[in-house]
Design a protein around this nucleic acid. Structure first.
Lengths: 248, 248
DNA sequence: CGGTCCTTTGATACAACTCAACGTATGTGG
DNA sequence: CCACATACGTTGAGTTGTATCAAAGGACCG
């Protein structure tokens, strides 16, 4: 019994070395994993399981007990909250390298759903807590992510509270472009995996107003819509001016 | 020379023991200080200086280098961002026990001004970093504060993006009431130290619409305005219903 | 090829903004 | 001490812009 266990374990180790998922992970430098050295990543990998999501599939419900945390490796997720009468606010889109569960304590405070087919690394909260105790750098990086998320949420407050529809859309497109770039992807034809409805619920608008805002930017020559889900930025400077960037 | 230094230092220690500001601090259990034991607080106090602000006085400018961090002990502050054309968004109000500089990295990302006469504990970033290294619980508590701030910012996103003016105001009043309560203050006649203009810039409205929303809540019998800066909540349940609380 | 879903465009309604006036409180100088 | 000025809040009238309602154009799939 003991022998067979030991053999099984060593086989697992071998398989890991062959597969070593993390070592071949393309977005490792972006995610929390970057906090760990080459030889330390194995510890993370040993508590990790993989999870795939189809578009529109739900990962987490607001109010559910927070048992697992995640790191997105590919695809796109959305964080959303639904009001009692069906109104929805999307509080953010997650891209590869982003971490899930930054804000939550005992329970999840938002719904999380896939916008595009997505792959995640999944960890039990307890395992991750242990690992963070062992590698303080991991916790440090998570804290860094949390501060960045807070800055982004505050930028969103400005956008939601004080920008006009076209300004909202312009700043949204620039945000997506900037994040694509920071994720080592081309920043110009910007892919929009989410629906107009998702964009509307992020910007605090209706789908019709979003659509009209796209049209305005297009007729002004600032963007080109290859199709509804791929935007080419033609005049970045003018788009930034519309977005009301350059504060004060 | 050495002797006189030593004597001066011991005198400072004695004075501290006599004054021991932190020991008598009323909001200590709320602020980051609560992370430390009785006997550890002296370390915090030794790197602390006090700072007072008159109403409308500016503490920090967006973009300035982040050299100091603060803990608010009394009064109220506002976090704000100004757009190039003068539009303003207030991203939060700070109450006693709240910490300043949760989101910032190299530079401050918001302006900070006093709404009411305020007193703060001020620390150099470097001193605080050292202290956090010495007392990990301090950093832990700061991280906790940051997660709470992120949850609040996301609640604000919902409010800004999807609530109607009266709903916004109702949820604002309930927020203030809840925070007053959590700060061991009476939660019913809610004091509003800030101006209508501040409220408008927090809720993403104009002052006129804020004023009309107050009137609506008043004529519906949900609140009573003793004066413009003191609100009595008459029907908390109905106010919560208007606020669109009870998500989903 | 017909059906569904998503996006865009058009017409209309209404709510929040803008502009304006009035009321109230506070403070200052004659 | 009162008259006046200033700042702030409330209320009213009119305008504008976004939401709503409606329909048509495309893309995708069975």
């Amino acid at each position: 019994m003991r022998n067979s266990n030991a053999r099984a374990e060593s086989e697992v180790v071998m398989l890991r070395e062959i597969c070593n998922v993390c070592a071949r992970c393309e977005i490792r430098s972006l995610a929390i994993c970057a906090a760990l050295q080459e030889n330390e990543v194995a510890a993370l990998e040993s508590i990790m399981t993989s999870r795939e999501l189809a578009p529109e599939e739900t990962l987490l419900h607001e109010g559910d007990k927070r048992r697992r945390v995640y790191s997105l490796t590919s695809g796109m997720l959305r964080l959303s909250t639904i009001l009692f009468d069906g109104r929805r606010q999307i509080t953010g889109f997650l891209m590869p390298g982003d971490y899930l569960g930054l804000a939550d304590e005992e329970v999840y405070t938002t719904n999380v759903e896939a916008v595009a087919p997505s792959v995640l690394c999944s960890f039990s909260v307890q395992d991750m807590d242990n690992l963070m105790q062992r590698f303080p750098k991991l916790k440090e990086r998570l804290y860094l992510f949390t501060r960045a998320a807070l800055r982004q949420a505050r930028d969103d407050q400005i956008m939601l509270g004080r920008l006009a529809p076209v300004e909202k859309l312009a700043s949204f497109l620039l945000l997506l472009s900037a994040r694509a770039k920071s994720h080592q992807q081309p920043d110009n034809p910007v892919p929009l995996p989410m629906s107009r409805s998702d964009i509307a619920d992020y910007l605090g608008l209706t789908i019709e107003t979003v659509s009209r805002s796209f049209t305005k930017l297009r007729t002004q020559g600032l963007i080109r819509l290859e199709d509804a889900h791929l935007v080419e930025i033609l005049d970045r400077r003018a788009l930034a001016a519309v977005a009301g960037i350059e504060r004060h």
